[in-house]
Design a protein around this nucleic acid. Structure first.
Length: 274
DNA sequence: GTTGAGCGTT
C-alpha cells in the first residue's frame, strides 16, 4: 500500500528511498508528501503501520526519483519539525530499492548524512525496551507473519527449529488473540462506533502482553505463590469462593474430598433447598 | 487521549 493507492511499490527501478524517523504517530503520508515533494520528484511515500492496530509505527519511507534530490531533501528536512516532532531523514538501507544506493556513489552521501544526523541529533542509546521486549516476543510468537524485522538474521540462524515450535505455540496464541480482539471490537462497537478505536487497541495490546507474559513464563508456572492454593479450588468456586472459604475457613481442608462429604454427611432433604 | 527505537507495503 502506498500513498498513491496502488498495490505495492510503484516502481523501484531507480528510486531512492529515504527513511524518515521520529515522525509523529499522527503524521500521514499526505503530510509528508508536500514536504518532500518540494525538494524533488517524490515517487512514493509509505508509512509502515502496525498490522493489528493499523497505526503508524513512527517512521516513513519517501521515495525519490533522483538521488541528488533525495540528498537535498535530507539536507533540508533532516531535523525539521514536523507535526510537533523533529524528524530525521536519511537514506534507507534495508529497503527493496536499497540496491541503487549501494551500486551508486550515494553510499558516500549515506554515510555523510548519517554522520551529520548523528552529530545533530545525539540521542542517547538508552533502550529501555519495554517495547523491545514486546517486539522480540511478538516476532517469536507471530513468526508466521513475515513482519519480523529480524527475519534476515534469525531466518539464517534457526529458521528450522523455530518453524517447528511455531506451529504448536501459535495455535493457542492465535486463538486467544482472535477472541480477545473480537471481544474488544464488539465492546467498542457497543459503546461508540468511532472513538474507541485507540482504546480497544491499547487494551488489546495490554491483554496480549499479559497473556503472553503468562504463557511465556514457565518459571512462574511452578514457582508462582498463588498457583499453590488454587489447585484446591474448583473452577465452579470462582463464582463465590468467599462463602465457602470464609465459612469453612481452612484452605488445608482441600485435602479432604468435599464432594462425597457434601452429599453424604449432609441431609439430602433439608439441605437440598439451600 | 497514551508510546518513541527503528528500516517498508497488496
Amino acid at each position: 500500500m502506498s500513498h498513491f493507492g496502488r498495490s505495492g511499490p510503484p516502481d523501484i527501478r531507480d528510486t531512492f528511498s529515504l527513511l524518515v524517523l521520529n515522525i509523529s504517530f499522527r503524521t500521514t503520508a499526505d503530510d509528508l508528501f508536500p514536504l518532500f515533494d518540494r525538494y524533488g520528484k517524490v515517487v512514493d511515500v509509505f508509512i509502515p503501520r502496525d498490522r493489528r492496530t493499523g497505526d503508524s509505527r513512527g517512521f516513513a519511507f519517501v521515495r525519490y526519483r533522483y538521488a541528488d534530490e533525495a540528498q537535498k531533501a535530507i539536507d533540508r528536512l533532516d531535523g525539521r519539525n514536523v507535526d510537533g516532532r523533529n524528524i530525521m531523514v536519511q537514506f534507507a538501507k534495508y529497503g527493496p530499492n536499497a540496491e541503487p544506493i549501494r551500486k551508486g556513489r550515494v553510499i558516500e552521501e549515506v554515510e555523510k548524512s548519517q554522520e551529520r544526523s548523528r552529530s545533530r541529533s545525539p540521542r542517547p542509546r538508552h533502550r529501555d525496551d519495554h517495547r523491545d521486549r514486546e517486539r522480540r516476543r511478538r516476532s517469536r510468537t507471530r513468526s508466521r507473519e513475515r513482519y519480523g524485522r529480524d527475519r534476515d538474521r534469525d531466518y539464517h540462524r534457526h529458521s528450522r527449529s523455530r518453524s517447528k515450535s511455531k506451529s504448536r505455540s501459535l495455535s493457542p496464541e492465535y486463538k486467544d488473540h482472535r477472541s480477545g480482539r473480537d471481544d474488544g471490537k464488539q465492546r467498542s462497537k457497543s459503546r461508540s462506533k468511532s472513538r474507541s478505536k485507540s482504546r480497544s487497541k491499547s487494551r488489546s495490546r495490554s491483554r496480549s502482553r499479559s497473556r503472553s507474559y503468562h504463557s511465556a513464563s514457565p518459571i512462574r508456572h511452578s514457582a508462582s505463590p498463588r498457583k499453590t492454593p488454587t489447585p484446591c479450588r474448583s473452577p465452579a468456586d470462582n463464582g463465590s469462593p468467599e462463602k465457602q472459604t470464609n465459612g469453612k475457613g481452612s484452605p488445608p481442608s482441600c485435602s479432604v474430598s468435599p464432594s462425597p462429604q457434601h452429599a453424604g454427611s449432609r441431609s439430602p432433604g433439608s439441605d437440598g433447598k439451600e
